[in-house]
Amino acid sequence: MLLQQVVNGLTLGAVYTLVALGFSLVMGILGVLNLAIAELFMIGGYVGLTLVLADYPLPVAVLAAAGVAAVLGVVVEKVAYQPLRRAPPIAPLLSTLGCSVILQTVAVNIWGSDPLQLPPDLLDMRFDLGQASIGLAQVVIIAVAVLLVAILALLVQRSSVGQALRAIAENRDVARLLGVNAGRLTSAAFAISGALAGIAGVLIGLHYAAITPYVGVETGLKAIAVMVIGGTTSIWGVLLAGPLVGLVEVFSVVHGGAAFRDFAVYGLMILVLLLRPQGLLGGRAAGAQRV
């Protein structure tokens, strides 16, 4: 039973980790909270599940979701971030909020407000782990998440794009003086974070075997809690915070009932904000000061 909860918590945590990486990438590099990421997560889920229902193979569905969400991510950047990049950071936060409202309305109008459900026999194979079992869907979710984190780590740590992104995060002006094309890299950051959220949307669709237009608010926003708990000064804090929040959520459901889980997750986030604003893994104590 305990092991089973751990498996379930880690699955959920894998999804949170991906969305939180999306939030954290934009936040860490540009100091902007892109609220639209929660809705790109939802749109990605719809694109992916629609394709899966149309009998396309899962990898195609995942790639399509990533593509659509990445393109929308860049649209959000052009419409809501670029014109306001010199404004106080609350202004782009509000304009991305406008984008999320639009995206949610679009989803309701295209797919309706009833959940889009996957057939129950899809990915229903289970592997026995002794006292627990793990579904094929859960294996896929965790495997995709681990793979994406590895790719992102390589991209950020080894590639020239990643080097430039880190340079901008360190000091935007100096990076530009040294010849980094800040505009293109900003678009890249929005696209990558959108793609991560879009894929995570497909994964949450597989996890619940359904998707609704409200999953962005219900689940996507919790990734903000994950980002805060992990610490916004480094994007890698979420690798610890994602699984942690997944486990907290699953265990709070077991011990406090379904209604208790959001209370536990957001409560943990507020505790961290108050007691350790730089996050569990944050190095500098400057977290709260980075406005």
Partner: peptide, 24 residues
């Protein structure tokens, strides 16, 4: 102790916590 975006995130968390509180 929190400013700008961090305050916005904290109030978002507080809002969801309160909704969740009345739920259980």
């Amino acid at each position: 102790r929190l400013r700008g975006i961090y305050l916005a995130m904290a109030t978002l968390g507080f809002g969801e916590m309160t909704r969740s509180f009345f739920l259980f």
